[in-house]
Amino acid sequence: MMWDRKDLIGIEELKREEIELIVETAKSMKDILNRMIKKVPTLRGRTICTLFYEPSTRTRSSFELAAKYLSADTISIATSTSSIQKGETLLDTVKTIEAMGVELFVIRHSASGVPLFIAKNIKSKVINAGDGMHEHPTQALLDVFTVYEKKNRLDGLKIAIIGDVFHSRVARSNIYAWNKLGSSVIVCGPPTLIPKDIQYLNVKVTYSLEEAIEDADIVYVLRLQLERQKKGLFPSLREYHALFGVTEERLRKAKKDVLVMHPGPINRGVEISSEVADSTLSLINEQVTNGVAVRMALLYLMLGGKSDENIN
């Protein structure tokens, strides 16, 4: 299996073998993170730009550290202090930075489709770091890698995705990934936060948290995106927690070896209780560590060959 894509826009277009290649490569990358000297010379002299039009701590720093551990140089453009404020268009900004020798852009934007639009219009490579309500592929890849480390398999698992599925690009990327890998997904949340036609993505739907948790191998809790809840989609945070909050008590009815994941940042006491988030069932910190390993794997696969336009 070889990586021959110019860009990574979504899990939707990936093949199962490509996901497995990334997981396989990430395993070796994780070893580097456990060393005292966390640096290999692989991408020396290559340059990566992170361009985030939405706030982010973990994704951005994860990409930047991944690049640094591989000896690549990074620059990051903050929208608040750049020429974007002077009215420069998105594409002009990217082309300007590309002209300075950047070979790969990591892009996050609140509008779905922005990374794809940019990827089509520049020679440099693009990784989607989250676009609107579309996809967040590297999050799903690190989730897959985290599950693989714990369960030693990727097929035949039951993944319950709980919460605000409607606004969640993380949910979409995870649904695509698990379907391709041969595991099944059930989504659960208040009806107002479950998209109407979600079953066409080959997932089961339930509005009962008990039912979702019952057989799950993985309980994947989504963040309640408070910044996107202006339309009164549920009555109150307290009620949300009472009905859909993942708590110790609710997990008692789950399988013995159930594991809990969350893409972060967590709203303690809303979608997940503090006890669960900090318990031994929780893989939340593991996910963050693995995020760096998976992004190193991707950067290696995308930049490790010859820097030439005759790829793809």
């Binding site: 070889m2 490569t25 990358m29 692989t42 290696y300 696969l301 490790g304 060959g305 010859k306």
Partner: peptide, 11 residues
């Protein structure tokens, strides 16, 4: 690495 078109598998 920069001279090859393929990227070798990391073991």
């Amino acid at each position: 690495l920069n001279l090859r078109l393929d990227q070798p598998k990391v073991g």
